[in-house]
């Protein structure tokens, strides 16, 4: 079983590489529109040596982390509040639903007008794209806590702050972690789009810049980096689901 999990993905990746090389060899596409695997490998080496790939990756990750943490910091407490206070829910839910269904990319012009080109514009867009799903999911999780847990909390003398930290928060933790995984992936998608238009660096800018310079080899290099870092982000967040006190939410 174990070896299959390692060997099979390698076989698939190798096959994909072979198809890529095969299509390139037919010459159906012009060289400038379809780089060879070898050209990409060379481009990759070039980008690594110049340090640009590393810098762009760090820049994009920094923006994602900032926007994401900001959204979690405001969104989770906001969701807790909405989940517990009916009046708050009635007041805010329609407007939250409105903004959730508004593509964050529509904010792009304002992001640039308000913050100019740079970190702040991307962070703003990432915040907008993940804040609303986090608020809504936290709110739903709180509303779905079985009432019996609060009865038990009352019986055993857990009130106020203790009830929040020892009952409400642990009860929603599995669902919040699942939401964090989904929204982190979303944030990583959004940062690339944001940087393509509102950036002067970062992996999204690298994509745009390679296109403008007709360097499709560097374009693919940036794409590969984006995909790999996306996987790493999810792998890191999966670790949260291994915390013993949240396992109950996943092993059913």
């Amino acid at each position: 079983m174990k070896w299959k999990a390692i060997v099979l993905p390698i076989v698939v990746a190798a096959a994909l590489l072979a198809v890529w090389a095969g299509v390139w060899a037919t010459g159906a596409f012009h060289e400038s529109a379809f780089p060879s695997p070898l050209a990409v490998a060379r481009g990759f080496g070039e980008e690594m040596r110049s340090g640009r790939l590393l810098n762009d990756s760090i820049t994009s990750l920094f923006r994602v982390v900032c926007g994401f943490l900001l959204a979690v910091g405001v969104g989770v407490p906001g969701g807790l509040w909405l989940g517990q206070v009916l009046a708050a829910r009635l007041a805010f839910l329609p407007i939250i639903n409105f903004f959730r269904n508004l593509s964050p990319l529509a904010w792009m012009p304002f992001a640039i007008l308000w913050f100019g080109v740079g970190d702040a514009a991307s962070i703003f867009l990432i915040f907008l794209s993940v804040f609303f799903p986090i608020v809504l999911s936290t709110m739903a999780a709180v509303a779905n806590i079985p009432a019996v847990y609060f009865r038990v909390a009352e019986d055993y003398g857990l009130h106020g702050r203790e009830r929040l930290t020892q009952v409400t928060l642990p009860a929603i933790m599995p669902q919040v972690i699942t939401t964090l995984r989904v929204t982190a992936g979303l944030a990583w998608l959004v940062v690339v789009a944001a940087e393509m238009i509102a950036g002067r660096d970062g992996l999204g800018f690298a994509v745009m810049d390679s296109r403008n310079g007709l360097r499709t080899d560097l374009l693919v290099t940036a794409m590969i980096a984006i995909g790999l870092i996306g996987i790493v982000i999810d792998r890191v967040l999966v670790q949260l689901t291994k915390i013993p006190s949240v396992r109950w939410g996943y092993d059913r």
Binding site: R151, D155, V167, P170, W248
Partner: peptide, 26 residues
């Protein structure tokens, strides 16, 4: 008075030890 509820009333995020410990908070 202590109640044992019709629904599962143990806190799933606490171990057996910690759940029983709830009853000993005083």
């Amino acid at each position: 008075r202590r109640m044992i509820y019709q629904q599962d009333g143990l806190f799933p995020w606490l171990t057996v030890n910690e759940n029983i410990g709830l009853g000993l908070r005083q």
